[in-house]
Design a protein around this nucleic acid. Structure first.
Length: 281
DNA sequence: TTCCAGGGAATCA
DNA sequence: TGATTCCATGGA
């Protein structure tokens, strides 16, 4: 059992679109999340007392880091709640935390995210794991870890295409023979790490921002996809057309050193708004 | 059928 | 720099 100091929602944290390798399971003793991050398989659920878990290849320290439980959330949230829009998003999805993912899994996952939707990304990463990952088992739940660079290096371009990667296959294939030094990237400033990531074929500003934020602890990154751009346009530019670059620059300057947190609440809030409207029709 | 999805590269002005 | 177009794929 991990005790929590400060707000946390396991559900919002996993469902907000920052992470793809998890499954929810209803069991006799309640609902659990099974989370596959790098070599680790974590079984977790939230209770009154805190975060109940069991895990293979991960300990309490790793789990705290994965879910951002070391972040000073009250302080971060007060720094980004600059208007009523953000206050609404923050109160609606209270306890959402930015994760600290395995960087390799994060980079490959977001390479797969290019011009794809979330179910598609889930399918691609699941296919990769199923084919090349190391088997994992915990409490009757069997799965595969996300393949390491060495494991994925065994995949041919044709193999990757058969996993549904489409035009992204050649980027992943190339990445496997030339993976970045994530420890070095983590030590760099955000600007330097972002620039270095963008040298990778198939990685431009948005994906470099996602990896910077979700794996390299660069909280000032403001990944700007179509949903975030939409939210920025509607909330802060009076519905006027805004370029992706302008929306990104606005977000970074307006929200400051924890812009990444603001981005994640905005993204989830804006996306869920459409999901709920679609359900009402 | 057409449109869209946590985009990026290539091309052209 | 900025705008278009193409890139696979599957769901709505």
């Amino acid at each position: 059992m991990i005790s929590l100091n400060g707000p946390f929602s396991l559900e919002h944290t996993l469902l907000c679109g920052q992470f793809f390798r998890f499954r929810r399971e209803a069991r006799a003793d309640g609902n659990w999340f099974f989370v596959m991050n790098g070599p680790a398989l974590i079984k977790a659920r939230q209770t009154q007392e805190g975060l109940e878990y069991d895990a293979v290849n991960a300990g309490e320290h790793d789990i705290r880091r994965l879910f951002g439980l070391d972040h000073d959330l009250p302080s971060i949230l007060s720094s980004i709640q600059k208007d009523d829009h953000m206050r609404e998003a923050v109160s609606k999805y209270a306890g959402l935390r930015v994760m600290r993912q395995d960087p390799w899994q994060c980079l490959v996952s977001f390479m797969c995210s290019s011009n794809a939707n979330i179910p598609q990304i889930n399918r691609m990463t699941t296919n990769l794991a199923a084919r090349w990952g190391t088997p994992l088992e915990l409490d009757g739940f069997s799965t595969k870890a996300f393949p390491t660079p060495e494991q994925l290096r065994g995949a041919s371009l044709q193999d990757l295409l058969s996993c549904g990667l489409g035009f992204r296959a050649k980027f992943v294939h190339e990445l496997c023979s030339n993976q970045p030094d994530f420890d070095e990237l983590r030590r760099m400033s955000y600007a330097d790490a972002h620039e270095k990531l963008m040298e990778i074929d198939g990685v431009a500003e948005k994906i470099a921002d996602c990896v910077s934020l979700f794996a390299l602890e660069k909280m000032e990154a403001f990944p700007t996809d179509v949903w975030v751009e939409r939210a920025v346009r509607e909330l802060y530019f009076n519905g006027e057309n805004v370029s992706t670059r302008k929306a990104r620059e606005f977000g970074r300057q307006y929200f400051g050193e924890h812009a990444g947190y603001a981005q994640e609440y905005l993204y989830y809030w804006r996306r869920m708004k459409d999901v709920k409207q679609a359900k009402q029709v």
